[in-house]
Structure formats: structure tokens, C-alpha cells
Design a protein around this nucleic acid. Structure first.
Lengths: 201, 201
DNA sequence: TTGCAAAACTGCATCCGATGCAGTTAACGT
DNA sequence: ACGTTAACTGCATCGGATGCAGTTTTGCAA
């Protein structure tokens, strides 16, 4: 990796950290892009060559989860059906929830509820990920699932977990506690997916 | 209804129609709020007392579908389970898809794919509607569903239909044909919900 | 009908996010 | 060491959105 690339990665990281600190101190709307750029010691204009928009700061590695899920599909056993694989993939994604120790994740969870632009971006990322997973799932089970069926199955899983999680997080004021969030995620998957684990594959 | 209210409703309608025409002619980003306000013969500033944002023009009656679904839940038969009721509600919502003759609906479907802000707003509306439906469902079946379970079930249904519909609409270039869209919606619900209609309630 | 209070409309100034452009600076490979 | 390429930066600009203050319109009661 060249010096250029290393420097660039460092600046990117500095931007995320500066944004995290400023968001925590002043709030999302109160923190301007100019503030963040200044804190990371780059020009305001240059910010937009690192992130296309302010929201994106909250989702610095949105690909990681998708990759984990795709891996889980690839690592399927010989006797697993589509629902089993999907279930395993979702659990693995839930476990990997600790991206970078929490501070940013806590902000993200709060802002997804409070700031429309952030919520919109989060939902779009989820939709895209869902589509990607469905594509891989259909490819893995060509005889049992067509494109539409795979999308429907994936949508049902993700939709169930997301909705359940939302209810569980709604009355959770201490979003800063990673353990509580982790527990909520696990309970959400359990409740949401119970209808499948007992039924047919 | 007072003269004031009637006039206000007329202006609101004029704004939606002006926006529809301008969007069709020039595109979403190319049409400014000032253009729309001018076409409806009100000041630019006044626009924001009718709609809080530009996107909102594309969702003028987002409550209607929720009301239809809630009605469907209320009209349940004595032997229907939660899944049956939800299925019927979803079908009714699908049938009511012809809001105001299509032009706006066609634009909406296109822009949900193309413009991030619109997609974000659409997903937020869907999420809110989902939550509302789940609340009513839980209230209707207090012994079989708790809050989390109702949210998970509703999320699964809506998620499945939405995902399936998205695949079907992806290769549909002629979005202007209401019949084709209607058919896609119906097929999406059929495919997505097949696992439930045969299984247990 | 008249007069008053509430609501709606409007222009103006302002802020912020985002983009195009052009000039400068820094890093890379030879 | 040098030319090429990429990155950084300031500047100007645009559109969406909000607060404010002044004017106009509507509603209602005297």
C-alpha cells in the first residue's frame, strides 16, 4: 500500500473520529461539515472527496455485514435448506455488531430514529444488502428458489428481525450499553424467526 | 368546511398537479420548488406551509393505505388467525393501489428507484405504517401475540411482499402501465405469502 | 355591515449541504 | 531530477429549508 493510500486512509479515519466526537458533543444538526473538516484539518471542499454526504460518516463500513452474510451462505452444509442458511447468516451478522467499539454505533442507532436523512440512508443500505443476499441465496439453491422467491424469503427474514428489533430498542434509553443492544438483537432474531426454525426448511 | 379550508385544499391540489406536470416534463432534480410554487401561483416561501419538503409532494395521501389495513383488521372474522387477517389486509392495500389515476404513482415508483431522498422518505413511510399495523394487530390478538411478536409477523409479511415486488418491478420499464404494475403487485403477494397460506395460522 | 382577531401569504435575509471550476501542492514512477 | 498524475483547496454558485416581520385575507361576533 502506497504512502498516498495510507495517508488517505488515515485522513478518512480522522474524519470519522472527529465527527463522532463532535456529534456527541453538539448533536448532528448542530455540527456542520465545515466543523468536521476543520477538526480533521482538511479543507471543507475536500471533505466531499472522502464522503459523498454528511450522513455517510455514520456508515463507514457498510459492506462488512454483507460480506459476512455472503460468506455464511457459501459455507453451507450439505443438508441445509435456504431458511437454515439464511438463519445462520443473520445470526452471524448479529454477532458482528461490534464495529469499532460502539461510540459510532450508538450514535447511529440514535440518529436513525431522530434524523430523517440518516434513517433514509440506513434503510437504503439495508435494502441493497437484502437484494445482494437474495441474489446469492438464489444462486446457491437454483432448484428450490427463483429470483422472486429468494427475494421474498430474504425480505421476510430481514423484515421480521428489523421490525422486532425496532420495538425492542424503542424503550431502550441506554443505547450506550453494547451488551443490552446485543441482547436485544439476539432476542429479536429468536422471536422473529421462531416460526421458521420449527417449520419446514 | 369553511371557505378557508376549501381554498387551502384547492391550492394543495394545484401544487400536486403542477409538480406532477413539471416532474414529467423536466425531471425531479431539474424542477425547483420555486418553479412549482410559481406554477401554482403562490410564493416560494408559502410552499413550505403546504408541504414540509419537496419529496412530500410525491406522497400526498400516505395515510389512506394504513387506514385501509386497520379497517381490514377490525373487520376480522371469528375464526381468523393473525396471519389470515394480515394477509387479507395486505391484499386490500394492494387493490387500493390506484391512487388518483396513476401519473403521480408512476413518477413515485420511478423516483423511489432513482432519487435517494425519495426512496428514504418512502421507506420511512412504510416503516411507520408497519408499526401502526403491528400495534393494531397486537391489540386484536392479545392472547396470541405480544408487541414484539406482532412486529415480527408484520415485518415478515411486509418485507416479503416489498422485496418480491422490487424484483418484479426492476425489469419493468413500462411503469406507466397501471395494469402491469397491478399484476406485479398481485403476483408479488402471491409468491411472497405462499408459505403462510398453506401453513398454520 | 362593521370592526376586530386569527390565520394565511409573502418577501427578505440567512444558513447549510452539495457541486463545478481552476489553480496549487504533493506524491509517484521513470 | 523531472514530468505526470492525483489530491487538496478556495471561490463562486445553486437549491432546499427556516426565522422574521409586514401585509392581506378570512372568520366571527357585535
Amino acid at each position: 500500500m502506497s504512502l498516498r493510500d495510507r495517508k488517505r486512509a488515515r485522513t478518512r479515519q480522522a474524519l470519522v473520529e472527529a465527527a463522532t466526537t463532535l456529534f456527541e458533543r453538539d448533536g448532528y444538526d448542530e455540527t456542520t461539515v465545515a466543523d468536521i473538516a476543520a477538526a480533521a484539518e482538511i479543507g471543507t471542499r475536500t471533505f466531499f472527496s472522502y464522503f459523498p454526504s454528511k450522513e455517510e460518516l455514520l456508515f463507514p463500513e457498510s459492506d462488512a455485514r454483507v460480506r459476512a452474510a455472503v460468506e455464511a451462505i457459501a459455507d453451507r452444509g450439505p443438508h441445509e435448506g435456504p431458511a437454515d442458511v439464511l438463519l445462520r447468516a443473520l445470526h452471524r451478522v448479529g454477532d458482528d455488531n461490534d464495529d469499532l467499539s460502539g461510540r459510532l454505533a450508538a450514535l447511529r442507532l440514535r440518529y436513525i430514529r431522530e434524523i430523517p436523512a440518516v434513517r433514509g440512508r440506513a434503510l437504503q443500505i439495508q435494502t441493497d444488502a437484502q437484494g445482494e443476499i437474495a441474489r446469492h441465496l438464489a444462486a446457491a439453491f437454483p432448484e428450490q428458489l427463483d429470483e422472486v422467491g429468494a427475494a421474498a424469503l430474504t425480505g421476510a427474514f430481514v423484515g421480521a428481525v428489523t421490525a422486532a428489533l425496532q420495538v425492542l430498542l424503542a424503550d431502550l434509553d441506554r443505547l450506550d450499553d453494547p451488551a443490552a443492544v446485543q441482547a436485544a438483537v439476539r432476542r429479536a432474531t429468536d422471536v422473529a424467526l421462531r416460526p421458521w426454525v420449527t417449520g419446514a426448511a
